[in-house]
Computed example of a mutant assay.
Amino acid sequence: MKIDPSFFFKGSLGKDPMHPADLGYFFPAEFHPHDATWLSWPHKEASWPGKINEIYPAYATFVAYLSRSELVNILVADERMQRLAEDRLATAGVVEERIRFHHFPTNDAWCRDHGPAFLIHPNPDMSKAIVDWGYNAWGDKYPPYDLDNLIPGKVALHLGIPCFRPGIVMEGGSVDFNGAGTLLTTEACLLHPNRNPHLSREQIESYLKAYYGVQQILWLKDGILGDDTDGHVDDLTRFVSKNKVLTVVESNKKDENYQALQDNLKLLESFRMLDGSALEIVALPMPAPVIYEGVRLPASYANFYIANSYVIVPTFRDAQDERALDIISACFPEREVVGVDSWDLIWGLGSFHCLSQQEPAAGVFPSKT
Rank of each mutant, 00 (worst) to 15 (best):
P166I: 01
F164S: 02
V95H: 14
D146Y: 06
T61R: 15
Y135P: 00
P124M: 10
I55A: 15
K51D: 15
M170G: 03
K154I: 01
P144E: 09
H102A: 06
A129R: 07
P152N: 02
T106L: 05
R165W: 03
S127Q: 15
H103C: 07
I161A: 05
V72F: 02
G139A: 07
H103V: 01
A117P: 00
I74S: 00
G115D: 01
D87C: 10
R112I: 00
S127L: 13
G134H: 08
F118Q: 01
T91C: 13
G153R: 06
P116V: 02
R98G: 08
P162F: 03
P162H: 03
L66Y: 05
M170I: 03
A109D: 05
E54K: 15
A92Y: 11
I120V: 09
G172I: 01
H102E: 06
A109L: 10
N123K: 12
H43Q: 14
P144A: 08
R68W: 13
A60V: 12
T91H: 14
E45V: 13
Q82L: 09
Q82P: 09
V131I: 06
V94A: 12
M170S: 08
P116W: 01
T91G: 12
H103R: 13
G115R: 01
I130G: 06
I151D: 03
M81H: 12
L66H: 07
R68G: 12
H158I: 00
I168K: 05
A109V: 10
P105G: 04
P143S: 09
L157Q: 11
A156H: 04
D148L: 05
Q82R: 15
A137G: 04
S127G: 13
R112N: 02
Q82M: 14
N107I: 08
R88E: 15
V94H: 10
M170W: 01
V155K: 03
E79T: 12
H114Y: 01
M81K: 11
D78G: 03
A129K: 07
R83T: 13
F62E: 10
C163M: 02
N53M: 14
N123E: 15
P122L: 07
D146T: 13
P122M: 08
G173N: 04
A129M: 09
D108H: 04
M81A: 13
A92C: 13
W41Y: 13
K128P: 12
K154Q: 11
P144C: 09
A156I: 04
T61L: 15
